[in-house]
Amino acid sequence: MSQMYPGEQVWTTVAGTIRKGMKVIAADGSCLGTVASVEHGEVLFEGGDVIPLTLVDGVGEEGVLLQGRGDATFGLGAQP
């Protein structure tokens, strides 16, 4: 579901709220790109790459985290 807020576009997903321009973070911590939009169960990157939402492990202030990091506290606001 896409929602418009003044100055930004966001999508509410089961993994969390994804915002246009968020970083997409791979399991190894590297940045794969930035979010252009979320459509039909997929995250579209600036530049045209696409990943299915099923690969998203969580959404936090750092960005959209893909599965495989094993970081169970990502996006939960937990303190180390």
Rank of each mutant, 00 (worst) to 15 (best):
H40F: 11
H40S: 14
G7P: 04
A78W: 14
Q9W: 01
D49K: 09
V24S: 02
V24L: 08
G70L: 10
G70E: 04
T12E: 13
C31R: 03
L55S: 10
K23E: 04
E42F: 04
A15S: 15
G70F: 08
H40L: 13
S30V: 09
E62V: 00
E42K: 13
L66R: 08
R69Y: 00
I18F: 00
S30L: 02
G68H: 07
T34H: 11
C31P: 02
Q9H: 07
E61H: 10
A15C: 08
Q67I: 11
L44P: 00
M1F: 13
S2N: 08
Q67K: 14
T54H: 06
G48W: 01
P6A: 06
E62G: 06
V43H: 01
A26H: 10
G16S: 08
G7N: 14
K23Q: 07
G21L: 03
G75Y: 05
V10W: 08
A15V: 06
P6S: 09
V35C: 07
A15Q: 13
L76R: 12
I51A: 04
M4K: 14
V59L: 03
L76P: 14
G16E: 03
E61F: 07
A26Q: 07
V14S: 15
K20S: 12
E46Y: 02
D28K: 02
T34S: 11
P52Y: 05
M22Y: 10
T12D: 12
L65W: 08
V43S: 05
D28M: 10
R69N: 03
V35W: 07
S37D: 10
Y5A: 15
E42L: 09
T12M: 05
L55N: 08
V59W: 02
G75H: 06
E46M: 11
E46Q: 08
D57K: 05
V14N: 14
M4R: 13
V35A: 02
V50F: 03
V35Q: 04
D57G: 11
P80V: 15
G47W: 00
R69M: 03
P52E: 09
L65D: 02
D57I: 00
T73W: 12
L55P: 00
T54W: 06
L55W: 06
L66M: 05
L66W: 01
L44V: 03
A27L: 03
V64H: 02
T73K: 09
S37K: 12
T54F: 02
Q67F: 00
L76Q: 12
T12G: 02
M1E: 12
Q79D: 11
L53C: 06
A36V: 03
A26C: 01
M4E: 14
V64K: 01
W11L: 11
G21W: 10
S2I: 15
D28T: 07
L44A: 06
V43I: 11
E39G: 00
L32M: 10
T12L: 09
C31W: 06
G58A: 13
A36G: 04
F74M: 08
T54V: 13
G58Y: 02
E46A: 09
E62M: 05
S30A: 10
S37I: 01
V59I: 09
G58T: 06
A78F: 13
M4W: 12
E62H: 02
E8Y: 04
M22G: 01
A78S: 12
G29E: 01
W11Q: 11
E42S: 08
S2T: 13
K23I: 03
T13N: 14
L32K: 07
L66A: 07
W11D: 10
M4P: 00
E61K: 14
A36R: 06
